[in-house]
Design a protein around this nucleic acid. Sequence first.
DNA 1: AGCACGCCGACT
DNA 2: GTCGGCGTGCTC
Length: 802
Amino acid sequence: MIASVIVDVPAKQTDRAFDYRIPPSLEGLVRPGMRVVVPFGPRKIQGFVIALLEKSSYDKLRDIEDVLDIVPVLNEELLSLAEWLSEETLCYQISAMQVMLPAAMKAKYEKNFEALVPVEQLPQSISKHLDKEGRLSWKEGIEKKLLNELQQLVTAGQMELKYAVSSKGKKKKERVLSLAASSEEALVLLDTLPQQADKQKRVIQFLLDHQSDEQNAATVKDETGASSSTIRTMIDRGYVIESFKEVYRDPYQDRMFQKTSAFSLTEEQQTAIGPILQKVHDYEHETFLLHGVTGSGKTEVYLQTIDQVLSQGRQAIMLVPEISLTPQMVERFKGRFGDRVAVMHSGLSTGEKYDEWRKIHRKEVNVVVGARSAIFAPFEKLGVVIIDEEHEMSYKQEDSPRYHARDVAIERARRHGCPVILGSATPSLETFARAQKNRYQLLSLTRRMNNQELPSVTIVDMREELREGNRSMFSRQLFEQLTLRLEKKEQTVLFLNRRGHSSFVMCRDCGYVMQCPHCDISMTYHRHSEQMKCHYCGHEDRVPVQCPECQSEHIRYFGTGTQKVEEELTKLIPEARVIRMDVDTTTRKGSHEKLLTAFGQGEADILLGTQMIAKGLDFPNITLVGVLSADTMLHLPDFRSAEKTFQLLTQVSGRAGRHDKKGEVIIQTYSPEHYSIDLAKTQQFELFYKQEMMMRRIGQYPPYYFLAMVTLSHENLLKVVSVCEEITSLLKQKLSNNAIILGPVASPIARIQNRYRYQCLVKYKMEPELKPLLKSILDTYQPKSTNDSLLIHIDVQPYMML
DNA sequence: AGCACGCCGACT
DNA sequence: GTCGGCGTGCTC
């Protein structure tokens, strides 16, 4: 038997199947979708079996070295989905497979020198570095400068260089103890043990009392007061048996989830869920857009759909933008479905993610709630895929494979014959346009549950404030409301789209702005560390006291970051307790949730944060939401900036007054007349949609056109420009006249880490030749040699224009 | 990606 | 004359 294998080498030349013989020892064990270790040139690497063949067209086959799985980790569907994904996003097949598995399953490669003769026969200079198996890693060999000597020993046949493949994922083991003898024998033992062996007796007694299963060694120690050495002795004497049991790391184990059951649906919800349940029942594919205002009860529709799916013996995937932000969502799912839910998000450790994945793989759960990559959960009988907050950017992966979870969801659902639900209060234009054209079925929830009023939204014109002499970052109105909340002991959320302290430092005399020396972007002032930081490459610099250009001392900070607001707040209202949430305060694992919990329990009056607080926050005591500057996003060089602004403002506003207290929202802006801000005030999605569609039509952007972007980067500006020119003219020449090709243009951030970035954007409606053409461009321009530092990447349907 | 094989400059 | 630079091509 022959196995066709995709090897773990992400490169153009190896992006194809290699055939291997299955040795007799592995006959029958190897199946498609399994990871194997194969010899590849002089080394050993990991690979995925994609097919079993009777014979190969290649005649110098080598043998598969080893199998890494008992059960395939990628089933038939996922294997073929990987193929689809690599074609669709122009990525290597191996990258498509890798992205479907938890990081813990990526291979780890080792290169070791190993002694072939007894260690004593080797020179002392070497032998003293060897471990007890007579091994020394290649890396250590370099560090200790032993490579020459080692090389000689290898040629002399006294040592060899061995390549090994190991898995990063470690299954967590727990030490358990059980009685070696039967109860009767143990009772005898209790009598015969000497008086002073009190601890030993207690251990035996404890194990007798809890005989139903094995006992965790740590529990035994705690309960009996026995020391490790006592237990060791007992194991050695054969009284108790020690063994290791595989356990799951459960990130939610200390949490109690209150069991909840289905609510009765409102009439509107009933109408919405009907067509979905019909499709679930009929095993038919369909994409639904569930368009519901904030607080209209979309989640309950999801939950009841999943209920139906589970009762059919099928499984459900629910995607959320970034779950660690919404512990409340996890709670709701765990509460309703208990142990049948796996949770996958970036806040988990590698090991925890691995364990959650294994629960899915072993069919111990039938629901997964997770971020983008959870779309690849290895379920075999999908009954529904739900994407909550469908418009969120985080569903698009920005590095290879550059996939959009929405597209993958629809493709998977099509294969499984099940519906997809896209839920949002502010759907992306693409999705809404498809719903208008009946490509997706539109379901609307227009009323908030319990008929809560929408919060009242006020737009404050900051230019007016400035004219009236208010130069602070808080408008009088916001400040007034803020102090009012403090008096009433209610909570406020302040939203600002920028971390750090000040966005840039400018000289008032000559206009000099401090920029990163490696990137074409201005540096951000961080008060805490008294440093200037580049948010793109991490470069740090001292804060200038004098203008480097004109020596003037009139250096001023402009723009406002979260840190500065925090300072200002403590200055203005010293008694206010403020929690700041941004990337700088939430890098530590779990810190996110901790801060939110603290706020939820009323340990602070004001929650100040960036984007990350816009989602999922649902506390009854929040009655005021302030947006300090609604414009920051609006002026970004991105055709979606108006859409993003509208979505963000609508979403942030939804944080106020979700319960019985009425909420108020204050939005500060310098451009109050802009439609995205004006219409967010009244949450008129459809009006916004009409207006924005008009802009897109004029600008020839999605949803009227599809996009593909080619980005090149190189240290040499001339080189990037010339290659970009070549590619652009090639595209112009090969594509139809209906395609619009823009470029070459410098990327909005023209240089990052000393590499110049140029891009070419293709706007098209129908170009069947585009994919193959892009593929051939990748073929010709992708670095052939390792030191050709020209990097090219192609993003089909890009989201980030930067 | 690695690694080997292969063709041109500064060294024992 | 060789050691070693990295350009090119192969890995079942």
